[in-house]
Amino acid sequence: MARIGYFPGCSLHGTSREYDESLRALLAAMETSVEEIDDWSCCGASSAHQGGRLLGVALPARNLARAEAQGLAEVLAPCAACYSRLAASRHEMDRDPDLAAKVRLVLAREDFRNGVQVKNLLQVLRDRLTDLKAAVRVPLKDLKVACYYGCLLVRPPEVTGGFDDPEAPSSMEEICRALGATPVAWNRRLDCCGASLSLARSPSVIRLGSTILQDARKAGAEVVVTACPMCHSNLDFRQQAMRHRGALEGEMPVLFLSELAGLALGLPPKVLGLHRHFVPTGSVTSRFAAAAGEVG
């Protein structure tokens, strides 16, 4: 059984717990054991580097150091923001030895080598594409999906290590095709949904989010797929507000990539946490759920 380090991050323990649930179920079904970083702490997300560069690097580094001490070679950070912070922290320490020395001091970890690979869900699933394909029980035939990357999964390439093209990525489409779904060609898959201003400036967020959802619909998508809890909560939770302001008509289900993959692997919607969405996911689950009817 393969083993992978896991940094769930705060969102997956709270507002996006269905991402955590579906991910654990999916990886279990793919015979990959998930080893959580012991006593992990918040990566600092978009606020820490507002408090200075060192804080922005040191908070994620604490988790990298714990993972290293735990003997983990690679860590999956499913949240795009956590992924970006962890990977950026690793990258910055790599290219700036003085900073790395400061961080070791702050963490009181003399032996920290900064040797842990940080991966996002796209990387982890694309690395295991053959296994994933083999595990599919319910191919998502004729399901038109809009693969939404957002900002931080493929940008900037120095931080992501260029695992996918920052201007023309294809990994999420490859994964969805492996699940039997049909990715649509659309224009807003790399646009920002505005998550970092989610609380502080919500009109901006509604403008940006609704533009993304409208474009997905125009391209014929039946569901938007994401691998980021920030994007998900912005696009799912805020759809009601978008409709209130007349920025959007109708509903567009937004699924985590792990949920979509879970459905294709025949996992029950309840296990995948699909009942926790604000926008009903019945239009998808009714067609593909192995035990349909569990979720409305």
């Binding site: 978009s46 957002g150 900002c151 931080l152 940008r155 900037p156 390439p157 920052p166 201007e167 790399l190 920002c192 505005g194 998550a195 970092s196 201003l197």
Partner: peptide, 9 residues
């Protein structure tokens, strides 16, 4: 700034 990195890319 949304720190979306579009400008830098």
């Amino acid at each position: 700034c949304l720190t979306c990195e579009t400008c830098s890319v």
